[in-house]
Design a protein around this nucleic acid. Sequence first.
DNA 1: TGGTTGAAC
DNA 2: AAGAGTTCAACCA
Length: 621
Amino acid sequence: MPPLLSKDKGKAKVDIPADLTEEERAALIAAAEARQRSFERSFAGPSVGKAGLIRDQTEINKVIAEASKGSKYYQNQVRKDKELTEKIEWYQAKRDDLMKMANIPRLESEADRILLEVEATRDTSQVIVHVDMDAFYASVEVQRDPTLKGKAFGVGQGVLTTASYEARKFGCRSGMAGFIAKKLCPHIILTKMHFDLYIAASKAVREVLLQYDENLMMASLDEGYLNITPYMSSHNMTASETVAHIRADVEAKTQLTMSAGIAPNRMLAKICSDKNKPNGQYEMNFERSVITKFMRDLPVRKIPGFGRVTERCLEGLGVETCGDIYTHRAQLLVMGHWFGFRGLCKAYLGIADNNVAPGKREERKSVGVERTFRDKVDDEDILNEVASIAEELEKDLERLQYAGKTVTVKYKLHTFENKTRARSVGKYISTSKEILPIALELMKRELPVRIRLLGIRLSTLKDLTVTDKGIKGFLTSPSKKRGTSISRHSTPTAIDDDDDMPELIRMEEEDEAEVLDMTFDEDKSESDSSTPPPTSILGKRKSSEKDKPHLLGPVCPICNKALGPGTSNLGLNEHIDWCLNKDAITEASKKSPIKKAKIEKGVPAKKTKEKGTMLEWLKKK
DNA sequence: TGGTTGAAC
DNA sequence: AAGAGTTCAACCA
């Protein structure tokens, strides 16, 4: 069937075939409208949908889309949106195909088995806090210039990095172009950035936070994670008391307010810190049943790492909330094979990393400089820019004390398409003298071009401050062995009189009933885990499948999985069927329509590679 | 492994 | 008239 849907001028257009029922018509129209909304949403800045909205967002989105129209940026968005839409439609067709033949109960029970495995990794023994400064840059700007207080203003020249809360009321937010913000809020004041001030303020905040957890993990200048478990016990305080105290302390010492989320892991803590956003805190109940209920209604977009593209892909499969992940588990398992599926399971179950450790400096992977400017076409102009950027990069490398082996030049065409060209050399380099020739060579090969951005990045780094003695690591990071999943068993509170059985197996046997109760709890708000169901729906399964195949039933020749002792030949065949389908989709995706189109256009240089299966990027975190 | 691209924060 | 810096994952040759 030809594409039914097209877009035009902010209106969702639908060409409806004559021979459809009313229901089918309605569904088509609804789908087109949803897509249009999603598209408009894409102009409102990357953070839309994460935070609560004050004014009617669809209204705002319309204004934004209107103001954007005609710009090259907009056209680029249209192009990307079209590609994404095509991809999603293609995958939907594939899914429908697969699901027609799939043995759904078996898919579901396989999904449930994975859910169970993931559930076994749950750890609620640590109290993790995510702290998030309120409109950080904007607040610092107010300190710099108190006349800004109470006004609608934004920080950043071309693009707002932050909007004051007053400006947010008009729909202005970070990531938004300045001129769009002006459209939404004509009286908005736009200020320059003052990075040195933000760094200083961040440092002041960090000093305070470190008193509550010396392993404080700063995720950026304005947010960080703490494990307050030790502090709570040594001070005999509850979590919310501790966090209230921290916030008051930070405010007293820096005159900056923050919001905080309290939860058993980083993901949940981050979501929670958003809940009472300006100057508030939210503590999540650590009960498993409460957590899963919380996740059930949570839009997937709220999960850190799930951005707009992921949101749209999932939406295309009918998944909008984390709860939908469970109801759609069969499809999701077929589409993104179980690696990606695990990440979704973690989202659904509210399970994530609870490790809090300071970022170590040698973890930096690259250093780069890039600049945006008015379109450049003149070769000499461009090469001069390369040289100037190389100079700046040298300064950064000097300041940060790094050398590296891989030089990457990046440029953005006037159409907003990005390109990168890289080359590695045999020794570590760090000066412009060394970098520039490589960068120039890389760039010369691309001429002539019309570009709006140029950048150079150095990677494969070596930290020049480490003295090669190896002792340094001991001195700088003493005891950070805390707050891992092991600690679950470190509390000797009569968990189990069990022997030294491997953890996985023990977990499965002991927790299975309980976990099942939870896993299948689509509507269990009444009774809780205290009464496990008498029989297991899943086939008994050990984690060490290979060891005793005879006890585990037949083994699938495709995926090498034991299928459980009760599996009949019929069951085996069915498993093989869908297992093959899994591979089929990976295969087929290589011939996805997008790629074909590119090849047919005979533009091999423009290679737009396709992802494998759609959800593979939803990998574990 | 190195090069490219894209998503996300 | 739509930024800058960084990490990560996937795919490919």
